[in-house]
Write a protein that binds this DNA or RNA. Structure first.
Length: 542
RNA sequence: GCGCCCUUAGCUCAAUUGGAUAGAGCAACAGCCUUCUAAGCUGUAGGUCGCUGGUUCGAGUCCAGCAGGGCGUACCA
């Protein structure tokens, strides 16, 4: 419908003021009285030509020749908006497009042939995934889904590091528990990993090796066992909320494949690093950032910046057209350094989109819960899924903009799971399935021949909602904003529930019943498609 | 101190990217089930869009300043 309008207006605008053409766009007015679409182009031209916008709008509308089967009327309103009213029958007949496309209604080939990489979660394997990781995990996966819907070939990637201090402490924590379980009296360090899973890992080692590992280096079998155990747990957790990364990229491989060494040589060659106080510094101040930072400590160990830069170079080497990094706000100070270095090395950094989500504040009994993996003070994603189910978890994290500092009340989430908005959407889907079952028993069949009978306001509202779905998907994906899909589905479900209340199918006149059933079928398709982007199931019964 | 983010109804959050009368859910109140699922629908009430200026046809949205909150600001990741 937008395209139709565009083709209609375009020639007229070209004649009045070619320069304004790029600004031509059509919005859906908030108020129904303002029509199905509106454009502010007259106001834009007005600014450039210094003419009265309403006069320009009149000129435009007078120049149009309308097919009243499609557009019944136009009007000029307010300061100079032009509003368009589509013919109800025309709208009703668009339903067939939804039915024909089915499970691919809403998909676009806009980016077909392009490859995207979405890096998310990327938590080091030191403990189970917590509710704190939930937002990153769910939003990352949903963004990947959205990109697939607009044509990208998407790789989901998880970057981790099993070499640093964190992991050393982890291995040592296991060894302490190992000795403890073998009867030794130990004093477990306060800043070591306190979680019970450490004991489980130690017990597993005892079952397998007995006491033969007492002389083993904590960084050897202990760390390896911990990493393996915890990673298996993380993958299982992610899988339970429908997340399966294709690539697990280990920082170690950057060293093993000589990528770190290559990078250092490149940086040296371009004069971007220097030595001071026994450490190697990156000249970030010359790249426009605040201050120089250390990339190799005086101990000879690199800081995280060096591997991070090398890692991102591999993403360029792997020929991605779009590279998405999803971080929590605690990383917001680190990526500008990496970006600056990549830019100085001549990489096309505009292909990288860094998305920062704000933290979810977890509250329990009116108290803020400060999550800490070290202190084993956390609520895990597993706990939450077990309590409320993966649909609620996925919907919850997807329903708010990632820029919002979201609040999550654990008690409320558990208690009010029945009232969670996700059920509102799923209920609409289940209702449709139920109608279809009943209609089938009554021998009412879908029929596209008489769709123009769908002119009741509730039918028209629902139809219009359905038809904008592809636009919503495209916009959400291009803005990397999953919550827009969730908001849209909420509105769609509302439109359906109203339709359901006012417009009966069984018992209505044959043509009406058949057409309404067809409309319900189209609604079912869109609900299911939308829910699948969010990773939420569409139940047949509730 | 500096950087990024946030401040909208009692609570949790939207707002078509600068559009017309700022909207949902929860909580509150009043209604609607002998007909397709009441996990639903209808209605009432609830607002100085943190504050002050500025930009323009038009500002919750952009700019400046101020106040409050979150996250950072390492030779940790």
């Amino acid at each position: 419908m937008r395209k139709y309008l565009y083709n209609l207006i375009n020639p007229v605008i070209s004649e009045i003021d070619k320069e304004s053409l790029p600004f031509l766009q059509f919005d859906i007015p908030q108020q129904e009285a303002h029509g199905d679409f509106s454009t502010n182009i007259a106001m834009i031209i007005s600014k450039r030509l210094k003419k009265n916008p309403r006069e320009i709008a009149t000129t435009i509308t007078n120049a149009l020749t309308l097919d009243t089967n499609v557009i019944t009327k136009t009007e000029i309103a307010g300061p100079g908006f032009i509003n368009f009213f589509f013919a109800p029958a025309y709208i009703a007949n668009r339903t067939t497009e939804i039915l024909d496309s089915g499970s691919s209604f809403g998909k676009s080939a806009k980016n077909s042939g392009k490859k995207a990489n979405v890096e998310f979660v990327s938590a080091n394997p030191t403990g189970p995934l917590t509710v704190g990781h939930g937002r990153n995990a769910v939003c990352g996966d949903t963004i990947a889904n959205m990109l697939e819907w607009i044509g990208y070939d998407v790789d989901r990637e998880y970057y981790f590091n099993n070499a640093g201090r964190q992991m050393r402490v982890l291995g040592d924590s296991v060894k302490y528990r190992y000795r403890e379980l073998l009867g030794e009296t130990i004093e477990f360090p306060e800043d070591y990993y306190q979680g019970d899973y450490i004991k489980t890992i130690a017990q597993n080692l005892i079952n397998e090796h007995g006491s033969s590992l007492l002389d083993e280096n904590p960084e050897g079998k202990f760390k390896a066992a911990a990493e393996e155990f915890i990673f298996a747990d993380i993958k299982k957790t992610l899988h339970s909320i429908l997340i399966d990364h294709k690539i697990f990229y280990n920082e170690n491989s950057l060293y093993e494949e000589g990528k770190i060494k290559n990078l250092l040589e490149q940086l040296k060659e371009k004069g971007l690093i220097y030595e001071k106080d026994g450490a190697t510094w990156l000249k970030l101040s010359e790249m426009g950032n605040e201050q120089d930072k250390v990339i190799i400590k005086s101990t000879g160990e690199p800081t995280y910046r060096l591997p991070d830069i090398a890692y991102h170079i591999t993403k360029f080497d792997r020929k991605y057209d779009l590279i998405i990094d999803l971080f929590g706000s605690d990383h917001n100070a680190t990526y500008p350094d990496v970006m600056a270095a990549l830019k100085s090395l001549g990489y096309p950094v505009e292909k990288i989109k860094v998305l920062i989500h704000q933290f979810v504040t977890i509250t329990q009994d009116n108290q803020t819960v400060k999550m800490s993996t070290r202190k084993a003070n956390y609520v895990t994603i597993d706990d939450l899924v077990e309590e409320v189910g993966n649909d609620v978890v996925r919907y919850f994290f997807n329903m708010r903009s990632i820029t919002t500092h979201m609040n999550f009340d654990i008690g409320l989430a558990k208690k009010q799971s029945d009232e969670n908005p996700v059920f509102y959407l799923q209920y609409a889907h289940a209702r449709i399935c139920s109608i279809m079952r009943n209609a089938s028993e009554q021998h009412i069949e879908q029929n596209r021949e008489n769709l123009s009978v769908l002119v009741v306001p509730e039918e028209q509202k629902l139809l219009k909602k359905l038809l904008i779905f592809p636009d919503v998907v495209l916009q959400s994906a291009e803005l990397y904003e999953p919550h827009r899909i969730a908001m849209y589905l909420q509105e769609l479900a509302e439109a359906f529930h109203r339709f359901y209340t006012v417009c009966r199918i069984i018992g209505s006149e044959k043509h009406v019943a058949e057409s309404r059933l067809t409309l319900a079928a189209a609604t079912k398709i869109v609900l299911k498609n939308g829910l699948s982007i969010l990773g939420v199931s569409a139940p047949e019964k509730m």
